[in-house]
Amino acid sequence: MRNRTETSDLTQADFDFVRTLVKQHSSISLDDSKGYLVSSRLLPIARGRGFESVAALITHLRSRPHGKVHTDVLEAVATTETSFFRDFHPYEALRDQVIPDLIRKRRESTRMLSIWSGACSSGQEPYSVAMVLRQVIPDIDTWTIQLLASDFSGAMVERARKGVFKQLEVNRGLPAHLLVRYFDQHGASWWLKDEVKRMVTFFQQNLDREWTRIPQVDLVFLRNVLIYFDVETRRRILRKVRRHLRPDGFLVMGAAETTLSLDDSFRRVQFGRAAFYQPGEGSGQ
């Protein structure tokens, strides 16, 4: 009998094949505990393409040159969970302190804000930021707001760009008054209004490749994404963040994440219950 991974019915050899494929193309590191995740993410692809099992799908992947099926598998594994106003505290900090501060600083100069959500998944994060901006900046139409959002997955970027969400998705974390204000209801679907949707520019971006579309920005959101990379890749990405962040800008990470021990040139700044990270001395090197 072939060896099975501890957490799924994938064989170790199949899991290792997927792990290598994912590491090569997306830089994401899957440890042995991720057998179940791989299996559950690949099952819909296997079913959708008529394979009798995930194992049969992997056999197909092994026997063919890199193509659409491989891309689908990579994107499925890379997809991260998201929700509107996830963990809320960072958005509270944006609303009450960070955005008002940036607005005060930029009001007499550029009147421009640049923000990048680097692992936007189906779009809830950048759209939450967009809603905060509309709430906080009364004369927003006289500002240049560059709100960029990218994801590894092309399918996710397509979905995010549509700005259409299920009831289950708008029921999570989104303040009801913002749902009423910024969405149109179509049966069980909730469509983001153009005034918010048009604020965000979506594109595909592998974080471990060149960041050709990322300008100098005031805020970078990389929440709950670095955890998928090995330590060296995390460090490489954080170095790039420093090069793209303005000196008074901030990196926003997941609630349980920190730059500590990865890149000590970031300075932790506490805003209420949220910690943001500012590029310190020596940044941009």
Binding site: S83, F85, F88, N171, R172, G173, P175
Partner: peptide, 8 residues
């Protein structure tokens, strides 16, 4: 979901 709404 309930906890997230209460957090708000």
């Amino acid at each position: 979901m309930l906890l997230e709404k209460l957090m708000l």
